[in-house]
Simulated scan of single mutants.
Amino acid sequence: MQGVQDLLPTMIATSVWGFVTGVAMLKSGLTEAMASWMTVLVYAGSAQLTSLPLIESHSPLWLVFVAACIVNIRFVIFSAAMYPFFRHLSWKKRLGLGYLTGDISFVLFMARFGESAQRGIPQHVWYLMGAVVPGWVIWQVASIAGIFFGTFIPDDWSLEFAAVLALLAVLLPLVATRPLFACLVVAGVVAWAGQLLPLRLGLLAAVICGVIAGVVVEQLQRKRTTP
């Protein structure tokens, strides 16, 4: 219930982002059935939006996969950070949690347990389940709604911009420490500067630079506080 409670303020942003992704899939030329299967099987808004222009332009399949993997490379970092809390589980259970875990649930989990000395207790599993399962349901409902009602949305409506604003409204209040602030600023600047790079490599560079900036600032803080 604590995981559900922490997730509740983010559901509006998740719903908007899912709806926009559903509309984008439909308008890119996918059929309603194909778009519905994509949102269930892929369950990664940024990867889906990255792959859609490539699918629409009939790019090679390997290129679609490479572009999606580059955008989602951040989840390798996320999973490495969460591994100590769930390494006692079987690989099947970890695979299921990995499929369900998204950006917001990762941030919520690490904000609550990241500094905890305990590892692998049942509370960690139940909290994450409380955060990821409702998030998955909300995403699927919103995305499928966008798929089936996307034809009624005028093309001149800037839904993508509204989705970005909704996500910012959720994420910015979570930036409560200097390392997180440094990570946000550096990642944002690098992502903006790398927009012209192919295959969304600017996002990969932003993830790497943001993580490095956060780690460096955290280490500097520890040195200052260590007598």
Score class of each variant (00 low, 15 high):
residue 152 F to G: 04
residue 204 L to H: 00
residue 140 Q to M: 14
residue 142 A to V: 07
residue 206 A to T: 00
residue 144 I to H: 03
residue 157 W to F: 14
residue 136 W to Q: 12
residue 165 L to K: 12
residue 138 I to R: 06
residue 177 T to V: 09
residue 171 L to N: 07
residue 161 F to K: 07
residue 134 P to Q: 11
residue 127 Y to M: 10
residue 175 V to S: 05
residue 187 A to V: 01
residue 208 I to L: 08
residue 169 A to G: 15
residue 150 G to V: 12
residue 139 W to Y: 14
residue 210 G to I: 01
residue 122 P to V: 08
residue 131 A to I: 08
residue 191 A to W: 02
residue 201 L to K: 03
residue 168 L to I: 06
residue 189 V to K: 10
residue 137 V to I: 15
residue 146 G to N: 13
residue 179 P to Y: 03
residue 200 R to A: 10
residue 153 I to G: 05
residue 204 L to S: 01
residue 130 G to Q: 06
residue 151 T to V: 12
residue 160 E to L: 11
residue 159 L to D: 01
residue 155 D to M: 11
residue 177 T to A: 10
residue 148 F to C: 10
residue 195 Q to I: 04
residue 188 G to F: 01
residue 173 P to E: 11
residue 199 L to F: 09
residue 193 A to D: 02
residue 157 W to Y: 13
residue 198 P to Y: 12
residue 177 T to N: 09
residue 171 L to P: 05
residue 137 V to G: 12
residue 209 C to E: 01
residue 199 L to Y: 05
residue 193 A to C: 05
residue 139 W to A: 04
residue 204 L to D: 02
residue 208 I to P: 00
residue 179 P to Q: 03
residue 150 G to W: 09
residue 194 G to Y: 00
residue 183 C to W: 05
residue 142 A to T: 04
residue 205 A to H: 05
residue 121 I to L: 14
residue 150 G to N: 08
residue 141 V to T: 10
residue 182 A to Y: 13
residue 190 V to R: 02
residue 121 I to Y: 10
residue 198 P to N: 10
residue 134 P to C: 12
residue 158 S to E: 09
residue 154 P to C: 08
residue 155 D to C: 05
residue 164 V to I: 14
residue 143 S to C: 08
residue 199 L to N: 01
residue 208 I to T: 04
residue 162 A to S: 13
residue 168 L to C: 09
residue 123 Q to V: 06
